[in-house]
Design a protein around this nucleic acid. Structure first.
Lengths: 110, 110
DNA sequence: ACCAAGTATCGATGTGCGTCAATATATTGA
DNA sequence: TCAATATATTGACGCACATCGATACTTGGT
């Protein structure tokens, strides 16, 4: 996975024809969401009591190994969809809804 | 690519934790959008004069071979994001914005 | 019946990436 | 300093899939 932050890249898909570079950027954004484990991580963290969750507490719910979860958390964080804060030996994550909105708005109807 | 139609599958990601099956379905939806050629096809067709376009006219703009374009049009059609109508020897495509909205709304903020 | 043009299918190839076990790194506490 | 726990990194493996050339199928016109 190339791990670029998700930023504004284009007018909505349905409003103006995408140039090649814009399509590449947008597709990279959706690729981050195109994995069920990552979607569950996003969803888990977004719905956590204080909007944040420790890596140690998301591993079990998604049913993947610790390295796999760490890998997905990195991809989400590098894409800007999560923030990561180290507190002692724990890593805490929060979702960044504005970044999700970039992708959401690219699908805005005419 | 598994080629399931994109249908409602879950509450928004940020509103309720996704179950495994929901995450799988949603991820499959985003996987369809996770390719720059498919995004450009969607965008081209959505912005065509009458909202429709012939396969013969989309091949050149996206800069891929005819078999590749045909393949992507199939994936988009099987996912329900495009409709396909055969007229004589030409295949005409239209986007189905309601299907895109299913994915858009899954990203709705709280 | 035949040919030309549009489209779909097939087979092959290379690459991207999700996954895990093993290991390394970091942090805390005794 | 040492042990324990949390997290990241590495290396390897297998599969999914984007792509193309070649070919088959389909349709309309002659």
């Amino acid at each position: 996975m190339e791990v670029q932050p998700i930023e504004y890249c284009c007018d909505p898909v349905l409003v103006e024809p995408l140039k090649e570079a814009e399509a590449e950027t947008l597709a990279a954004g959706f690729r981050v969401l195109a994995d069920p484990t990552r979607l569950r991580l996003l969803s888990l963290i977004a719905n956590a009591p204080d909007g944040e969750m420790c890596a140690c507490d998301v591993t079990a719910p998604v049913g993947r190994s610790q390295p796999t979860v760490s890998h997905h958390l990195s991809i989400l964080t590098d894409a800007g969809l999560l923030t990561r804060e180290q507190r002692g030996k724990w890593a805490w994550f929060r979702v960044v809804p504005e970044r999700l909105s970039v992708l959401r708005e690219a699908l805005t109807p005419v």
